[in-house]
């Protein structure tokens, strides 16, 4: 098992999107789901908000009209590794492309008060850490962004966020964190149980034959 020690601390300037219900269609519009690749989505992240024109798969950032008011187009946020938002981030469509787009842009952690179930699950499979915090803590972090740029340091092992002198703890299941730290492969893990699956399947085929027709 190889440890990815670089991934243990995520720190830097926080980019923020102060709204609820940011759905996966906003994170990456359907047009870009036409790609059959697993990488190369960075230019299309938040496409509808990032540009002032309609994009197409294959059209580069340089050919687009940039909306300078959008936070991810501004220094230093265009290099942020941490994104802060509010309720129900990543709701809607199951598209894993939403996680790929955040990852390809360089985002390593998203902090929000809640997440869409499927997005949350997809994140860990691609090394993106979604952190759930209470609304009061989210409010506190947003207040900081209003006063100044906000720098955070997230420690995956200790499950804590350092904000200046303050420490905010977050909870996330250890096996999910391990997946990010060690880059574990789900299929490899599951195939270790191959015999159990085969036996289960054999029994089910006898007991519920209609399923296998």
């Amino acid at each position: 098992m190889k440890s990815n020690s670089e991934g243990l601390i995520i720190d830097g300037m926080v980019a923020y999107l102060d709204r609820d219900n940011i759905d996966t269609d906003q994170i990456i519009p359907t047009e870009y789901l036409k790609s059959i690749k697993k990488f190369g989505y960075e230019d299309y992240l938040f496409d509808g908000w990032r540009y002032k024109d309609d994009g197409k798969l294959g059209v580069t950032k340089e050919e687009r009209i940039i909306d300078e008011n959008f936070i991810l187009n501004q220094e230093p946020y265009n290099k942020s590794k941490i994104l802060l938002s509010r309720d129900n981030f990543g709701c809607g469509s199951s598209r894993e492309h939403a996680v790929w787009a955040l990852r390809d842009f360089g985002i390593k952690a998203v902090i929000a008060s809640s997440f869409g179930d499927i997005f949350y699950n997809n994140s860990f499979k691609n090394g993106l850490l979604p952190i759930k915090l209470d609304k009061t803590e989210i409010d506190f972090l947003f207040k900081q962004t209003h006063q100044d740029t906000l720098e955070l340091s997230i420690d995956l092992q200790k499950k804590e966020i350092k904000v200046g002198d303050k420490i905010i703890f977050f909870s996330v299941e250890q096996h999910l964190v391990d997946r990010i730290i060690y880059g574990l492969d789900d299929i490899d893990i599951t195939l270790k149980e191959k015999n159990k699956i085969l036996n289960f399947e054999k029994a089910r085929a006898i007991e519920k034959p209609w399923v296998f027709k």
Binding site: S94, E96, I118, N122, K125, I187, T190, L191, I197, E201
Partner: peptide, 20 residues
Amino acid sequence: MGIGTSEVEHVLATQCLKVS
């Protein structure tokens, strides 16, 4: 239920979903 593409691959490969 709906799943992401990594899980599509996982189900193709193992006939199982790894879930809580």
